Computed example of a mutant assay.
Amino acid sequence: MKRLDYKLIEALDSVVRFGGFERAAEKLCITQSAVSQRIKQLEQMMAKPLLVRSQPPGLTEAGQQVMSLYRRVVILEQDLLDSIHHQDSGRFSPVTLAVNADSVATWLLPALAPLLKQEKIELHLLVNDEARALENMRRGEATAAISLQSQPLPGCQADYLGEMRYLCVCSADFAQRYFPKGVNREALLKAPALTFGPLDDMHRDFLQQHFNLPNSSAPCHVVPSSEAFVKMAKAGLAYCMVCEVQIKDALEEGQLINLLPHLWDTRSLYWHHWVLETGRLKALSDRVIKKGRELLYRPY
């Protein structure tokens, strides 16, 4: 079997990264026909289809494996060249992370800020539910991921970061309006709640576990934004499950109240990354693990 031609893989990466052949051709400064020919040549070399020609384009399982390797090689190559020449090339290395919205809204960006100032890293965030972020890494779309799963992918390792604790909160006037006699099944059937999206099962599971309420039995707004969650709760529009670290000040200032102080939910977060990391990737992982363990709750 012939060795991989990274010029051909670059075309595949560009089509997927930029969402089509036209934009890939613009980025590579070649024609769309040349992009198509490179991908066809790569698929012939691999004897397997690599690109799902949909809108937007995607990757087959084999394509995901090729892309996962390629994106790591690009970063490792840049680190090697900088090290050999003992100087900064000035080029930014693209790094894609699959992360959950609550980590982005709270601890992750402050943790990465010093590194992003020091290293030439072009950060791409794929914001996904933490229960599903590992799929982005498995498909070759991300170099590392924050996930609930403790079992790493082949060739990877999973480092425990800590716990995100979620409280059930609302504004004082919302509580007075919907829960004047306390939180019970009857009141919960009438009070509007918030959920992040159709794949977010935290609110549903919380109600089912503690109040035996079946799915979709209570009104629920769908708002895919951690920041909007807090704003809507403060405005008295709904109650919701929010990570404690995000609303610490709001609770202390009385803008929000903890509806159920004796009940909460937790999510264990793990940092998934490749075992063989050097340079920028290793620095990024070291930073995430160190700051995650400092800022997240750790019961032991």
Rank of each mutant, 00 (worst) to 15 (best):
161 L>H: 11
276 L>W: 08
74 V>I: 11
226 S>Q: 09
228 A>K: 09
50 L>W: 13
23 R>E: 14
142 A>P: 07
130 E>Y: 09
18 F>A: 06
93 S>H: 03
139 R>C: 10
49 P>W: 09
198 P>D: 15
265 D>E: 13
229 F>P: 01
12 L>H: 06
45 M>R: 06
242 V>P: 00
101 A>Y: 03
14 S>D: 06
13 D>R: 02
19 G>E: 04
2 K>T: 13
155 G>S: 03
78 Q>W: 08
284 L>N: 09
176 Q>T: 15
80 L>G: 06
30 I>Q: 05
179 F>Q: 10
255 Q>G: 03
216 S>E: 15
110 P>W: 04
126 L>N: 05
191 A>K: 06
3 R>P: 07
122 E>C: 03
120 K>Q: 14
231 K>G: 00
106 T>S: 13
212 N>W: 14
140 G>I: 11
17 R>I: 13
112 L>P: 03
297 Y>T: 07
298 R>W: 04
111 A>T: 04
213 L>I: 08
132 R>V: 08
265 D>F: 05
225 S>C: 02
230 V>F: 02
7 K>L: 03
81 L>C: 14
79 D>Y: 11
137 M>V: 09
249 D>L: 07
248 K>T: 15
195 T>C: 04
239 Y>H: 14
52 V>R: 15
61 E>V: 15
142 A>F: 12
111 A>C: 12
134 L>K: 04
125 L>E: 05
118 Q>S: 14
13 D>Y: 12
58 G>H: 08
269 L>Q: 11
252 E>F: 01
78 Q>L: 14
197 G>K: 01
258 N>P: 05
197 G>D: 07
278 T>C: 09
40 K>G: 02
226 S>I: 01
249 D>N: 10
94 P>L: 07
280 R>N: 12
223 V>H: 01
285 S>L: 11
107 W>A: 08
183 V>R: 03
185 R>E: 15
8 L>T: 00
190 K>S: 13
16 V>C: 10
33 S>T: 10
181 K>S: 11
253 E>G: 00
72 R>Q: 14
95 V>D: 05
169 V>A: 04
55 Q>M: 11
260 L>Y: 06
271 W>L: 12
299 P>R: 13
218 A>V: 01
130 E>R: 11
228 A>G: 00
272 H>T: 10
296 L>H: 12
44 Q>V: 01
27 K>N: 07
97 L>P: 01
291 K>M: 14
83 S>R: 10
59 L>T: 02
280 R>D: 12
263 L>H: 03
137 M>N: 07
123 L>F: 04
123 L>N: 02
26 E>C: 04
30 I>E: 07
37 Q>S: 05
25 A>G: 06
178 Y>M: 13
205 D>L: 06
9 I>P: 04
20 G>K: 12
198 P>Y: 10
104 V>A: 04
105 A>I: 11
25 A>D: 09
165 R>S: 07
82 D>K: 02
184 N>S: 13
243 C>F: 01
